[in-house]
Write a protein that binds this DNA or RNA. Structure first.
Lengths: 239, 239
DNA sequence: CGCGGTGTTGAGACCTGTCAAGACGTGTGG
DNA sequence: CCACACGTCTTGACAGGTCTCAACACCGCG
């Protein structure tokens, strides 16, 4: 599913055949990672980056008292730790939220790309800047939206991002997160997520059963969330 | 005060004389911007980036209902919209929180730097990744810290960042924000910020009067906030 | 068949928000 | 020099959204 990654890049800019080849050749190894693991530990020294070929991962921070905040979710096609190329170690953990297939790309190969493919380098810099834009949008949710809009916004974002990667039916996606994990994304408690989910189901905006999410009324959900996809920096508004 | 910017870069990596010269020469214009302005509007097309030579700016997002979330604060030495080099327009406003002196750097000149100075390019990419790390830390605050730790964490961060820029007495800084603006950073109401500030003053951790902040007990404040500066990616822990 | 993880429900507590009024300081114009 | 307006800070009373704690239901799996 390297195609998902290419689709994600191409949603932002053109990628030439040579650039595509460079990306494919940069991959040193493909492997799988089990469900609910800490794949990268905060602080660990890194010499390669990870491309998520299939599955769900997340960036997470633990606090005293057992609380955890997830600061971003990653779906198939995402470069989960491209930022480690310049940072060399991370301020957060990378965890798996489903069984994952990943591709490993040595920083050495990324360095070679930065030397030979300036345009592609700019695209990858752009992708880390889009990650930052997603962080900002989450900060807006965490700081200023109430539980219902937080959840609505969260679900809108995931549907759109999975559509970009080509991993969505028109209005429905595989959704492996537990309510505990949703709570860790939204800064809520699991109990309150449960009630908020019921509220959104009651309004007939979504269906969520058996790890499958269906958006019944995307415009309604977007209105509720005050969702504007401009922070995802897509080329056209076709998504 | 371009020195503040160089100090900020040098807190992360070495900057050669040639690189320093390239930065200085990239500046096309220096100007001032008044207090409490929207300096860059969300969505506006941009062809240059802004280096903050003196003063305070912020990234802000407005929501329906008059609410506003500030997603990052910028102090002297910060590149406030380096990300616009790849993004071309922003998902948020850039506002001034004090009178500011700024340097404008055309994207054209940044492009030239990316072509001629690969190491410096990596540093600037790194700086946008550190912005993202700051966003993550704010998300942790917004999602999981209570009002007292939010505020404590916020003040710790600002002291450290101003020290890096060389704009702090050992434990005290100029602090132009109103309580309303602090509230917009922390996802609280101004009234609650007021009470939280009193609580922290009562514990003799800080003094804040006449737009001057003094940290009376930095270790205490850091403990309260669970503050760990590793997300600022400094070379040594001397700050 | 029992167990652990997950989802659901209820009652009550608590943190933070809302609304409103007043204090204080500063700048401006008469 | 005073009167006034305005922004900011402060305080009180009360409301309300979210959390906590606890119990129970459900289900896949060993």
């Amino acid at each position: 599913m390297i195609e998902a990654h290419l689709a994600k890049l191409r949603a932002r800019d053109d990628i030439s055949a040579a650039e595509e080849a460079a990306i494919r050749h940069a991959i040193a190894e493909v492997r799988t990672v089990p469900d609910r693991q800490i794949f990268i530990h905060r602080g660990e020294e890194l010499t390669q980056s990870t491309l998520l070929l299939d599955g769900w991962m997340a960036r997470a921070r633990d606090l005293r008292g057992g609380h955890r905040q997830i600061t971003e979710l990653h779906v198939t096609g995402d470069f989960v730790d491209l930022h480690s190329f310049t940072l060399k170690h991370l301020d957060h953990d990378i965890i798996t939220l489903s069984p994952c297939r990943i591709a490993l790309i040595p920083h050495e190969n990324l360095r070679r790309i930065t030397e030979q493919f300036p345009h592609l380098t700019r695209i990858y810099w752009l992708m880390t800047n889009i990650d930052a834009a997603i962080h900002r949008e989450w900060a807006v949710s965490l700081g200023r939206r109430d539980a219902v809009s937080k959840l609505a916004h969260f679900l809108c974002e995931l549907l759109i991002r999975l559509r970009i990667a080509g991993c969505a039916e028109t209005d429905s996606i595989d959704f492996p997160l537990t309510q505990d994990e949703i709570a860790e994304c939204l800064g809520l408690t699991p109990v309150h997520v449960n009630r908020t989910l019921q509220e959104i189901r009651r309004r007939e905006l979504i269906r969520l059963e058996n790890k499958r999410l269906t958006i019944l009324d995307l415009p309604g959900l977007m209105r509720l969330a005050e969702f504007d996809p401009m922070y995802l920096y897509l080329r056209q508004e076709r998504h």
